[in-house]
Each structure stands twice: as structure tokens, then as C-alpha cells.
Amino acid sequence: MEKVKLGNSNLKVSQIGLGTMAFGRWISEADSNAILDHAVNSGINLIDTADFYGPGQDEKPAFGDGTSETIIGNWLSHHPGARSKIILATKVGSNTNPVMSNPSLSREHILQQIDSSLERLQTDHVDLYQAHLFDNDTPLAETLTTLSDLVDDGKIRYYGVSNYTEDQLSLALSIVKDRRLNPITSLQNRYNVLSKHDDQNVLKLAQRSHVGFLAYSPLARGVLTGKYLNGAMPSSSRAAQGEPLIKEYFNDADQQAVEKLKTISDQTGTPMSQLAFAGVLSIPGITTALLGASKASYIDDAIKAAELKVPQSVMTQIKSL
């Protein structure tokens, strides 16, 4: 698979990355290992996780115990040569307390969590460490200075931010410049053909600022595969498993867009998922689309999408959904 430069860094990442939000949540460790095996063997080198990912995401209050990181760390321990071949990314800042909500990007919390993540991942550094979401209760300069210091300490190679708006990213970039901090390497935000309008401005800012863009949820949590058309609810699907964030796509406008994508799929003989991936990867400024694969076969589909040559007339239809 083609590798592309991530922002202003020296990292070369695959155009399809593996997102591991479901590891240990509704995907067993054995199945997670099989997915990791297949992804790496297929040329995917970006593995994205977070200290929040695990079964606690579905509790109230939602919390993270690092189960996904633990699974990846165990896999790395059984594949001694794999660490040097992958770009390992994790995130910090979501709630990690099972008793009460305590999301934080304070210096104290970040320094505590990076050590915990490194222990679970069984590595001495992560390649990309990302602020999981904007923290309104912590001065942004404190967060960015701490992340920059971790680069100097060698615990992380680069850092990025996630779920930032245009204004938030603009402010962060200004602080980095004014304080002469190590640069922001990446922005990880949602981007798919249904939600594209939400992130166009921040994507353009990232592109102008040489910040790589990691697009998560390129398949709209599976909605763009067509599996939920006409009210269908597959028993093994995210919606059936209780994924709350998928509900926002269950509206008339998005369902009509999915029906149009199915028509394009039927006319071209190309699976809906591949068209959706291709639509995201065709957008200038997007570096990588993150696939939250629950089956190894989904990886093959995504890789085909990265290699797909979609006629411009068809791409225009996809972008107009």
C-alpha cells in the first residue's frame, strides 16, 4: 500500500489506517489479533488507539481502561519485529475514571497517562500522541507545552490533536508558533461523505498549515455500507451492539444519501464501502482514512478502495451526496 507523509513529520503512513476503538469492546482479543495480523501483512502501518478504548466506553459514565492498548501491547510482544514496521498512535484526554467523569488534558494527567499507555503498549515510545478532544477546563498552552515536552523527552515522536474545530486548531497553531513549541503534526477528525460539510474549513486550515489529516469514521460507523437500509438491523452490527453515536445518521437526509450511494454502487458494480472510502481519500489534504475493522475481510475492501480508479463523473456524484 502507498505510504504518504503525515503533515510536517518524517512519518510515512499508509493511506488506510487501522482504528481499534472496538478492540476489547465488542471484538475479542483473539479476533483483534487476527485483524492486526491481516492489517500489517496487507501493508497497513498506522495503528490508532487511545487510553479510552475498551468496554468502559459503554458504561455510565463512560470511561477508558486502556483495554485496546493492552491488546495491541500483547500482540506486539508476540511479534518482536513488528514494532519497527508500524506507526503506533494513541490518544489522551478522555475520561479514565470508572466512578466519575474526569476528562483532562492537564499536564499532570497527560504525564500520568503517557506512562500508563507505554506500559500497556509494551513500548518505550509512541510515534504519534494525540489530544483526544478539546479541554475547556485546561489552558491550551499547558496542554501543548506538555505534549511538546514529551517529544523532547523521547516518549513520543510527534503529537497531534483530535476533534478540534477550525477556531480551536487556529488557536493551537498560534500558541505553538508564539512559544516555539514542537509543531502539531496531525488532526484526527471525523470525515465521511455524510459529515463532510462539518469539517471542510478545519481541513483546509490543516492543509494550509502542513498538518496531516486523519479521517475517522469514513464509513459513517458502517452506515455507508448500506447494511441499515430500509430499517435493517444486522445482529452483529454496531447499532445492534448499542453504539450510541451511530444514531445521528438515522435520519431522512442521510438515509436518502445512502440510497443514492447504493444506486451509484449498482450502476458501477463497485461496493458502497469502496466508493465511500474512495470519496474520502480523494479529498485534498486528507492523509489517511481510519478503518474500524471488525473483520479481516473489511481490510481487503478498504485497500481495494485506496487503489480504486473512480471516473471523475462518478466521483462528482459521490461528493454531491
Rank of each mutant, 00 (worst) to 15 (best):
E59S: 15
E59G: 06
P61W: 07
P61T: 01
A62H: 01
F63Q: 03
F63D: 08
G66P: 06
T67F: 09
T70S: 08
T70N: 04
I71T: 06
I71M: 08
I71C: 08
I71A: 08
I72P: 00
I72E: 04
G73H: 12
N74L: 11
N74H: 14
N74F: 08
W75L: 13
L76C: 10
S77L: 05
H78D: 15
H78W: 13
H79A: 13
H79Y: 05
P80I: 04
G81Y: 10
R83E: 15
S84A: 02
S84T: 04
K85I: 02
I86Q: 04
L88P: 04
T90P: 10
K91H: 02
K91F: 09
K91E: 11
K91Y: 00
K91A: 03
V92P: 08
S94L: 11
T96F: 07
P98Q: 09
P98T: 00
V99W: 14
S104P: 03
L105A: 03
L105W: 00
L105E: 08
S106D: 01
S106A: 05
H109N: 11
L111D: 00
L111A: 03
Q112E: 04
I114L: 10
D115K: 14
D115E: 15
L118G: 10
L121D: 04
Q122S: 13
H125P: 06
D127C: 02
L128I: 02
Y129D: 12
Y129N: 11
F134L: 10
N136T: 15
D137I: 00
P139G: 05
P139F: 01
L140A: 02
A141G: 06
T143N: 01
L144R: 10
T145K: 15
L147K: 09
L147P: 07
S148I: 00
S148P: 00
D149V: 14
D149H: 14
V151Y: 06
D152L: 06
D152V: 06
D152G: 03
D153K: 15
G154C: 07
G154W: 06
K155S: 05
Y158R: 03
Y159T: 11
D167A: 14
Q168Y: 04
L169M: 05
L171D: 10
L171P: 07
L173M: 15
L173V: 15
S174V: 13
S174C: 13
S174W: 14
I175T: 02
D178G: 02
D178T: 10
R180I: 03
L181S: 12
N182L: 13
I184H: 07
S186K: 05
L187F: 07
N189T: 01
R190H: 08
Y191H: 13
N192C: 13
N192A: 09
N192P: 10
V193L: 07
L194T: 04
D198C: 04
V202M: 10
